[in-house]
């Protein structure tokens, strides 16, 4: 592969072009393989497509660019703390709109850090919530009959189903 380029261009599933630096792309295993296999140089016109929609890809790239410096070199503890705070801010996003797209994208791009972060964020939204609150947050439709609900309740003592 050529390591001369600093940034590569990728296409989103919507067909939009995005630039991502090589060091940031390395956070994703499939992208890293692509880097090693495909010739990326200035006169190369091959543009790989990433099956992630534009809106999500923007966020994923933002995450990669932020995390790349730390992933590529050991940084100090205080930087780690700062990054954590950044992560929390980064994850303040609309559930319905984008959180799960990010989760899927992180899964697809094998990005463990982002994946854990998105799972954690989704779980945090459920913590301390009642069943009906969770249904409301995630727009889940209750398709149980009341008998079925009662049966579930009996099967799980010690767990409040309110």
């Amino acid at each position: 592969m050529s390591s001369s380029v600093e940034a590569i261009t990728v296409l989103s599933s919507d067909g939009d072009e995005f630039k991502i630096t090589v060091s940031a792309a390395k956070l994703s295993k499939p992208l890293n393989w692509m880097l090693e296999d495909v010739c990326f140089s200035d006169d190369c016109d091959e543009v790989p497509t990433i099956e992630v929609n534009s809106k999500t890809l923007v966020k994923v790239i933002e995450y990669c660019e932020k995390h790349a410096p730390r992933a590529n070199s050991g940084a100090s503890d205080s930087d780690a703390e700062e990054l954590k705070k950044w992560d929390i801010e980064f994850m303040k996003m609309d559930v319905k709109d984008i959180l799960f797209h990010i989760l899927m994208a992180a899964n697809y791009l094998h990005m463990e850090g982002l994946y854990d972060l998105a799972c954690q964020t989704a779980a945090d939204l459920m913590k301390g919530m009642t069943v009906s609150q969770i249904r409301k947050i995630f727009h889940i439709k209750n398709d149980f009959s009341s008998e079925e609900q009662e049966q579930l309740r009996r099967q799980h003592p010690g767990c409040s189903f309110d």
Binding site: L103, M104, N107, C119, Q120, A122, A123, D124, M126, K127, V131, I134, R135, I140, K141, N142, D143, F144, Q149, L152, R153, H156, G158, C159, S160, F161
Partner: peptide
């Protein structure tokens, strides 16, 4: 993916997701 999400919850909360809908 759903399992990974509910893994992060405490057991009572994780069991509680069972009544969200049949999917869960």
């Amino acid at each position: 993916l759903l399992c990974l999400i509910i893994c992060q919850l405490s057991l009572d909360e994780s069991v509680r997701t069972s009544v969200l809908s049949k999917r869960w």
